[in-house]
């Protein structure tokens, strides 16, 4: 019962926590570049400011899809944290991403379209790896339920280290971090799908990004099984790793990204699966 309780608290607080993670990330990134950087609460200032701007849309459907993206992302996160079916979670995750892609396609804006196309391609890049990870977890825990992984006595990391490496390699794609940030690429496509949102409607997309952090870190946490300390350690490690990577690398183009992800990350996860299925 207490697990459900914690999960519900986490779900309700998810946007807040995600905002904090994002704020910390901006500070850490600034410090890595020997800058002072914005205050930790900066994302929330942005949040309040965006709420106050005059409302403006390209057309209603576009803005509405952006809002639904946020809502369905929160819902998917809820299913995930409550220990729902992993396949369902991955599917819902695919669908909420599809909503933002649809929003991108629904306008006649070049950058939005480019961004939507690139987001779609990045889905091709990371989705198979996530699926492989879910399947390997199934092989070990005997259930697709995420709760089975949360309660697994032995950390899954020991049985699927390669899958964890694969996850680390695809997370930058999912979180749109360098070197795999083609989908957002501020200098190229000025934010891609987010471009046409403004004011309170952009807020939905902006906050959805924070939720995506929580989603991704929960994926990392899955590998720790019931070992909470290890889980926190893994998340911290991932946090540092992601920011260091983001600062240290330059953007690759989408072809290189696809090739790398499907070639290296996918194979790693697949080898892990083979080992699991044979042992």
């Amino acid at each position: 019962m207490s697990h459900t309780f914690i999960a519900i608290i986490l779900i309700i607080l998810a946007p807040f926590l995600g905002g904090l993670v994002y704020g910390l990330e901006r500070v850490i990134r600034a410090r890595m570049q020997r800058r002072i950087g914005p205050p930790v609460l900066q994302p929330f200032y942005d949040f309040l400011k965006l709420a106050d701007k005059r409302r403006m849309v390209v057309h209603s459907a576009h803005a509405f899809l952006g809002i639904m993206h946020f809502v369905s992302l929160w819902y998917a996160l809820g299913v995930f944290l409550l220990g729902g079916d992993l396949i369902l979670v991955i599917f819902l995750h695919l669908l909420y991403t599809a909503l933002i892609i649809l929003a991108g396609y629904s306008t006649r804006s070049i950058f939005s379209h480019l961004g939507a196309n690139r987001t779609a391609l990045s889905i091709i890049a990371y989705e198979p790896v996530l699926i492989l990870i879910a399947v390997s977890m199934y092989m070990i825990t005997g259930s697709f339920e995420a709760s089975a992984a949360f309660h697994h006595p032995q950390p899954l990391l020991y049985k699927m280290p390669l899958a964890f490496v694969a996850l680390l390699l695809v997370l930058p794609i999912k979180l749109k971090k360098s070197p795999f940030d083609v989908a957002e690429a501020h200098q190229e496509v000025t934010g891609g799908v987010e471009l046409e949102f403004s004011g309170i409607y952009y807020e939905a997309v902006y906050t959805a990004k924070w939720l995506d952090y929580i989603f991704s870190y929960t994926l990392v946490y899955l590998f720790a099984g019931s070992n909470i300390l290890l889980g926190i350690g893994l998340m911290l490690f991932t946090f540092i790793y992601l920011n260091a990577l983001d600062n240290a690398t330059a953007r690759v183009n989408y072809k290189q990204m696809l090739r790398f992800s499907l070639g290296v990350s996918f194979s790693l996860a697949f080898i892990n699966l083979l080992i699991n299925s044979l042992s």
Binding site: R35, I36, G37, P38, Q187, G191, E194, S198, Y202
Partner: peptide, 21 residues
């Protein structure tokens, strides 16, 4: 850039009028 670092005021160069102040 790092030397003057106006991100400390919370500024971001968005490159996008719809989200700029």
């Amino acid at each position: 850039a790092p030397k003057y670092d106006i991100e400390r005021f919370g500024m971001i160069n968005t490159g996008n009028p719809k989200q700029s102040d």
